[in-house]
Design a protein around this nucleic acid. Structure first.
Lengths: 330, 330
DNA sequence: CTGTTAGCGCATTCAA
DNA sequence: TTGAATGCGCTAACAG
């Protein structure tokens, strides 16, 4: 049996559909008696407006589309939680779409959102936003999250990855380490590139020499990199991994090899996933307020959709979380 | 500037809107030449169909609504990943809604999905499904995930929480432990109740006596419970926590107190979160294929929406992951 | 094979 | 204050 429509309610309440619409949308120019009648009828029929029809008529879907890369764990859940919190406040729904594989599919996914959402939140560290949006209805407002890309036409929420990487290298140097190896994120990932950039900059500033092992944000990459470091025994005394998962992979290798992490060997990650605190020894890292990013992204797109001028926010600065201290013997 | 509509495309290609619709929906009865013309025009205008209008006309939204409780970390991301994987295959979008606080809000959230989605996947371990669905358009197909509740009118994806709890208690007993304490999940949570049920059943079967400390799935609850156990020193030689996070909380307390976890003190969790493997000593636990549950949920609701008879699946059986072994001295 | 048209459910003008 | 009528963008039934 099909759901009740506004017409069913109108018939049940013996009024016109226009009146039903007025009552349900809180127009003030309705007599209390009619309001009563309509509300009763609506309740009796268990009426709920059809969002599709509503969106067609209002040109407003009251929903925001979200396009994310393949995120894992807390990163994903916290980001969505932050958005959801604000979305609930603003009376907006969240339409989620994971980005698979190539840019072509991503564009397709974005397209299916037209007429379904009022705005887009896009996190696409691996894809050129220009390409992504070139095929898009330009009438759909969109914002980019943490893309570290210059000169986009779309507003962005930035995270200061480069500055944060410098902070952590500075900390390692201050702790007495001099031969700091960087395990990088996937090539082409803009966040990873920014972090490597910061690493190189800080190392240069301290008059040290950079050394980068290519990684890909996976625990296995950390494992591999650490094994390589142990194999070479080339004087490396600290590792800065571009994210926590790689740092954890490295940590396990060092631990198993009897290398004192936090003493003989410095180690730092990036993200402050929960695991960073719970693993032992726990991990020095940069904390990113992921839920906060999500919340800001939603607030911003909601403002744009409402025609308010979007307050273009300054970059979010991650916070240094120190859990290991100085190099032994220093 | 508003997006191009099907009419704009029709005008641009000098054909009728019906033809445009036919071309774009892959009807076979169109001359290649016209197909060509329409596709060109569509491309030129960057046309994308309006999902709202489409849904209105087709009575199909090509989207599935998902209502989740406040999930964290891998649990959330894996579940969504599983659904998303199948959704992409089936050409469906995912409309996500976190369940906040009380049942009333949940019902409201469900209502706003009408006309927006073709079916619902609901995970609500803390809310009575009957209540949830009583206010719902009965025309909206819905399935319940892991609700461990009998006699619902809606199809369900079940996880055999009770059986799994028995398995893990059996394992602890087989490892030589006799005095097994259970840290339970939140009262009123059906999954938690099922696990406690299994614990009690297995303990009874082995002729041992049950002892339950009330928890709430949080790490802190595990911490508190373990502290209590240490304080009392009442002969408890093993702990089965209703989830991994509580087990981790307990583990840290035991570790800090110098209690040999896995030897002197048995410990087991439930879920197999990534942390369970990485923490040291790593955790014996039950692995639940969370992505698999999500995938099955989506496959099932998709089948129902398509009018296929839903293959009512049998309960998913978690897998025992042994990472600690026998009681020392046995 | 193609065009015309009705109608999906709703909000909203315009009249009354 | 209320009702009748129009249109939002699209698909499908019907005619040609």
């Amino acid at each position: 049996m099909a759901s009740a429509t506004i017409r069913d309610v109108a018939r049940e309440a013996q009024v016109s559909v226009a009146s039903v619409s007025r009552v349900l949308n809180g127009s003030d120019n309705v007599r209390p008696e009619m309001r009563e009648r309509v509300e009763a009828a609506s309740r009796r029929l268990g009426y709920t407006p059809h969002a599709g029809a509503r969106s067609l008529s209002l040109s407003r879907a009251h929903a925001i589309g979200v396009m994310l890369p393949d995120l894992h764990g807390e990163f994903f859940s916290e980001f969505v939680r932050g958005m959801d919190r604000e979305a609930a406040k603003a009376g907006l729904q969240l339409l989620l779409s994971n980005m698979h594989a190539d840019a072509g599919q991503a564009v397709e996914a974005l397209k299916t959102m037209r007429g379904r959402v009022d705005g887009l939140i896009v996190m696409a560290p691996d894809i050129d936003p220009a390409l992504l949006f070139s095929h898009l209805p330009q009438s759909l407002p969109a914002i980019l999250v943490s893309s570290d890309c210059e000169g986009s036409a779309h507003p962005q929420i930035q995270v200061d990855n480069m500055g944060a990487a410098e902070v952590i290298v500075d900390h390692l140097v201050a702790s007495g380490y001099r031969n700091i190896v960087h395990i990088s994120g996937p090539a082409g990932n803009r966040e990873a590139v920014a972090r490597e950039h910061g690493y190189r900059e800080a190392v240069r500033r301290h008059g040290l020499s950079p050394r980068v092992i290519q990684g890909d944000f996976s625990e296995e990459a950390g494992t591999a990199a650490a094994s390589e470091i142990l194999r070479n025994r080339d004087g490396a005394d600290a590792v800065f991994a571009a994210n926590d998962m790689m740092a954890v992979g490295a940590l396990v290798v060092f631990r198993d090899a009897g290398v004192a992490v936090g003493g003989e060997m410095g180690l730092a990650g990036f993200d402050d996933v929960p695991l960073a605190r719970l693993i032992s020894p726990s991990l020095t890292t940069m904390r990113v307020d992921i839920a906060g990013i999500g919340a800001r992204a939603l607030t911003m797109i909601a403002a744009i959709v409402n025609g308010d001028t979007a307050p273009d926010s300054e970059p979010l600065r991650p916070e240094l979380i120190i859990r290991q201290t100085t190099k032994a013997g220093k």
